[in-house]
Design a protein around this nucleic acid. Structure first.
Lengths: 208, 208
DNA sequence: TAGTGCTTGTAACAGTTGTTACTTAAGGTC
DNA sequence: GACCTTAAGTAACAACTGTTACAAGCACTA
């Protein structure tokens, strides 16, 4: 494990902390679509993302979904942090957006390391900071943008995350994540195609 | 100052920390409408709220506003936390919703206390946790509720915060905070009045 | 190749929200 | 009371989004 760890986190954590992580952390590989955390579930360990991407979703009482943001390598889930610390249930769902590698840290270490390592405290604060800003971005999108702008932003984000300008999603899947209907997405995608911004195919979309 | 401090924070902080706060913190009273933090501004100190309420707003590039949440006594602004720690500009605007009393902590103490006091770390983590959850609540409202439900929720929140079922706002002011237009608010308020849920007057609304 | 299930395209319509314009009412000042 | 400013009521319409229904196309397989 140590190699993946040093590659991705050596600039963040001091040596002793890296050693501790190496001792108590467990390496994990997950496939696209793997459901890491469900709403209402208690969380017992904290993930450090090595590679791949995780999508974080919110759900309302009717089961309607909404994409909140993506996590990438070098990041962790601030929601998980609060769940671990507060021993409360998860407010969100986390699903692997791509195949991913991660290191799981048992929650007992969280408080210990917060007292012991400045770099750990900074990492945790930094994570919260980033997550708050991502949520603000999400709020901006929902509150201030129209659906066509949100869709374009979403497509760009997908391309950035996967590092591939082909988006392997159906219209229905996109509709779920943006919390709208399939027909609306088809309609707007068609408009984008007419504007020359995308190419539509069965089961995938090419962003140009 | 020590009295206000112990009254509101003695259950959270150990004695030595309370003493430190008392030494380096400055007591401040502000009036309703006072603009505490502006978007883009650097933040040099962190507020601990003793009494009153602060509203936290987001703004888009066109200057359109959106209410994010209210802060109450015993709370602090997580956005400020991240600004202090990261030395970044504020992403939000904070305005006194009511007259308020607070203690301002110089940012230099933040890191020091995080290393020294477990209760301080917990307070900071707890604040982040609460703020994340408030933002999720806000997202739920915008994404999943219709305007009439959002309005009712907003009115209830205002009443809870001020501890008074008379809301001293004009329709225009409400429209700004929910990011819609005055006409829409007037229309929906009229509906709520017909349903017997509110009483409308010039410059104020009574929630029944 | 016929059948099946899933995906996409499209039309028609409904509901909600946003906009414009104008009127009416309230409260303050002279 | 006359006047002015601001707030609120209302109608008519526009724009956007959501819904329903159905057709057409693709991929797979039996």
């Amino acid at each position: 494990m140590i190699q993946e760890l040093t590659q991705n986190y050596s600039h963040l954590f001091e040596k002793e902390l890296l050693n501790e992580i190496n001792q108590v952390g467990t390496f994990k590989e997950i496939s696209e679509g793997y459901r890491m955390i469900e709403i209402g579930q208690y969380v017992r360990s904290m993930p450090l993302l090595i590679s791949g991407a995780i999508k974080v979703l919110r759900e309302d009482s009717d089961g309607d979904e909404l994409l909140l943001y993506f996590l990438e390598k070098g990041e962790t889930c601030a929601m998980t942090l609060t769940c671990c610390l507060g021993q409360t249930k998860s407010e969100i769902r986390a699903i692997a957006e791509t195949d991913a590698k991660l290191i799981m840290i048992p929650i007992e270490k969280m408080e210990e390391w917060s007292a012991k390592y400045k770099s750990w405290r900074n990492f945790v604060f930094e994570s919260y900071h980033n997550r708050l800003n991502e949520l603000l971005e999400t709020i901006d999108s929902i509150a201030f943008l129209k659906m066509d702008e949100r869709l374009l932003k979403y497509l760009n984000e997908k391309v950035r995350i996967s590092n591939d300008n082909i988006i392997n999603s159906t219209h229905q899947e996109i509709a779920y994540e943006l919390h709208t209907s399939r027909v609306v997405i088809s309609r707007l995608l068609k408009k984008l195609e007419n504007l020359g911004k995308v190419e539509l195919h069965r089961n995938h979309i090419v962003l140009k």
